[in-house]
Amino acid sequence: MPDIVVKTEDVVKEYRMGSNVLRALDGINIEIERGEYISLMGPSGSGKSTLFNMIGALDRPTEGEVYIDGQNMSHLSQRQIAAFRCHRVGYIFQSYNLLNVRTAHGNVTLPMIFAGIPDKERNEKAEKLLDMVGLGDRMYHLPDELSGGQRQRVAIARALANDPSIVLADEPTANLDTITGREIIDLIKQLNLKQGVTVISATHDLKMLDVSDRIVDIRDGLVERIRNRDEIEIEVGEVGGHE
């Protein structure tokens, strides 16, 4: 029996802009298994980032339900949602979202502060994580003193601080050049393989295709199709041919 970690049921999200109502998600149903690497693909405005926010409890759906680890997210208290964001999920964003007033090390320790981990333990763990993402020598630099790729590495280390079971990555390579983007994708894939972390990534970066187990194509707020890895490999060839 598959171990479903994320399940959405008829998720609808509407945004009100004055008198207009924009339906960003129009009834999304997906199931994601533990340990999978899933890419949510689609053009800008397709609703993939909105879906990303729903899965990560960063926003509330207008209708429908999101279940994580079998828990209905709409039934959780504020404190439970905060604990969920702190312990269960690691977020990686397109614009890194590092706190500019904290060093790389300070950014990685922050989620551990919120989790109540003692000083010494969290400092050691932050050093270990930053070492792992290849920033052992730039630990005490502020984000402004780091390159885009390095900032994204800090964000990855921060996302892993509390050993989450899910890593959510929203366009993690969009602000990076091709080579750096590739490195970041490889790093995320390694986490997926070595630590068994479920990775859910909203992207329109084609480089993400060949590391994904499944691709969910989103268009106009609906799941257009879901492709498996074997189908993907053929299409990567096709895409390569067209470029």
Binding site: D69, Q80, A83, G106
Partner: peptide, 26 residues
């Protein structure tokens, strides 16, 4: 269907931790 792991409640941080973060930020 899914395995259900209960989600705990988030803890309150000690006051001195808030004081430290706010001074650092200033």
């Amino acid at each position: 269907m899914q395995q259900q792991t209960p989600i705990e409640e988030q803890i309150d941080l000690p006051f001195v931790e808030s004081l430290r973060i706010s001074f650092q930020s200033l």
